[in-house]
Design a protein around this nucleic acid. Structure first.
Length: 430
RNA sequence: GGAGAGGUGGGAGAGUGGUUUAAUCCAACAGCCUGGAACGCUGUCAUGGUCGCAAGGCCAUCGCGAGUUCGAAUCUCGCCCUCUCCGCCA
């Protein structure tokens, strides 16, 4: 959510700020009319609140005379009649003010975050900036296969039975696939908690709607999530939701910052609109598991911590010796709530593409404002924290990368050295 | 899931329709005192909104939401949560 006060203040200073933000909205594919509507509605809101409060103050003043009259034994009936009328007026004004207040709030929730100055302006995902490439893609003396071919041949994925038992976009992992999944969770959680200074966390996998609003999923992306009928429980699309909301409506001490968590969770995504893309294999599933890195930061340090968090995510790929590149997502491709996002894309020799395996974002105060997460500096007023998160990493996609990068001509797959101890010493999957 | 009890500021805790402007205590912070401290004394001590150049004013918030009333922490209804007991369960 945007800072309405700042928006108004800067709008009053001249058109340049608003023009800049309008351009930003256009680049993000959002409607600029919403902004104008919001500013106008907020003007009306303030006017109504002022009138409502003045009426309320007057009513209270008059009403306070009643007990004095009664105590001195005088007749209060005339005053009672007067205050009865006032009460009606107050009720009407209060109702109007509350209604417009809600409208402003709901409208403000639909506007995306402003992007940081270092985010490239672009029209499509093609305009994302490649910031660096790490690791040399391996050359194969044979035709490299895609992960689902390898997996099926190894007998470690069962798509057909998953469809029977659950539906499309679900998979049974068997044998070494299940073992790999378990090993990677352990490996990543160990790395972040013992090397990178994050507090381990396993959050609830269901959250209430207030939490989904807090991180930006609701109201705009309601249909992307699974919901439990007849309840206010919603399956988390990422651990980011429960972990960010961990401090919802709280005021932290400045010395506590930054607070760093690494959280393991399954993730559930309905994403009805994505049907037809990546239908083969485990690339795009309704359910997958992920280790998520999450930081609550002092605003002055959030960009420094964003770089650090991204490096921590990259370290997973470095240790697994998987080639990857880092993208700085452009205005057209960046997510709704983010101010800046680095995507890490791992090289998949079978598919012949770089595929997203981690997304590391700085949300600045966008989520903190929605979720009301603040910190207090000594003697100062509470201020909104900055929130950051990134995958470290998505487990399923890491399995894809391992299969494709470490495949051998006979269809067997080597296990990278750093992972072998988590695999019970197994060095080749066959 | 059932029954009972409860939810008031950072913490404890008073307050059953109008001098409540939420008492009091503790903690915290600032000052005085001291060579320095402790003790003692004095003061400060919520959050949000809104008006105002400012000083400051006003409004809201006693788990959440509706309602009754001129007026609600206090009365009514619904919901949430906590505790105790019972049931069920990994």
């Amino acid at each position: 959510m945007l800072d309405m006060k700042l928006l108004e203040k800067r709008a009053g200073e001249g058109p340049s700020f608003l023009d800049e933000y309008r351009a930003n909205l256009v680049h993000r594919g959002a409607r600029t009319e919403t902004l104008d509507q919001l500013l106008e509605l907020n003007r009306q809101r303030k006017e109504l609140i002022t009138r409502s409060e003045q009426a309320k103050a007057h009513q209270k003043k008059v009403s306070a005379q009643i007990p004095e009259l009664k105590r001195s034994g005088k007749d209060a009936s005339q005053l009672l009649a007067e205050t009865a009328t006032l009460a009606q007026d107050v009720k009407t004004l209060e109702r109007q003010a509350a209604e417009i207040d809600e409208r402003v709030f709901q409208l403000a929730l639909t506007l995306p975050n402003r992007t940081h100055g270092t985010v490239p302006v672009g029209k499509s995902a093609d305009d994302n900036a490649v910031e660096k490439k790490v690791g040399e893609p391996r050359t194969f003396s044979f035709q490299a296969k895609e992960h689902f071919i390898l997996g099926e041949k190894l007998g470690i994925f069962d798509f057909e039975r998953a469809t029977k038992v659950a539906g499309a976009r679900f998979t049974f992992l068997k044998g070494f696939a299940a073992r790999l999944e378990r090993a990677l969770i352990q490996f990543f959680m160990d790395l972040h908690s013992s090397q990178h200074g994050y507090m381990e966390m396993i959050p609830p996998f269901f959250v209430n709607s207030a939490s989904m609003v807090g991180t930006g999923q609701f109201p705009k992306f309601f249909d992307d999530a699974f919901h439990v009928t007849g309840t206010d429980y919603h399956l988390i699309p990422t651990a980011e939701v429960p972990v960010t909301n961990y401090f919802r409506d709280e005021i932290l001490e400045e010395e506590q910052l930054p607070l760093k968590f690494c959280a393991f969770s399954p993730c559930f995504r309905a994403e009805a609109g994505a049907a037809g893309r990546d239908t083969r294999g485990i690339t795009r599933q309704h359910q997958f598991q992920k280790v998520e890195l999450m930081v609550f930061a002092h605003p002055e340090r959030s960009y420094e911590l964003h770089e650090e968090l991204t490096c921590h995510a990259e370290q997973c790929l470095v240790e697994l010796e998987l080639p990857f590149r880092r993208l700085n997502l452009c205005t057209a491709d960046i997510g709704f709530a983010a101010a800046k996002t680095y995507d890490l894309e791992v090289w998949l020799p079978g598919a012949g593409v770089y595929r997203e395996i981690s997304s590391c974002s700085n949300f600045e105060d966008f989520q903190a404002r929605r979720a009301n997460i603040r910190y207090r500096s000594k003697g100062g007023k509470p201020q909104f924290v900055h929130t950051l998160n990134g995958s470290g990493l998505a487990i399923g996609r890491t399995i894809i990368a391992l299969l494709e990068n470490y495949q051998q001509e006979d269809g067997s797959v080597r296990v990278p050295r750093s992972l072998q101890k988590y695999m019970g010493g197994v060095d080749v999957i066959r």
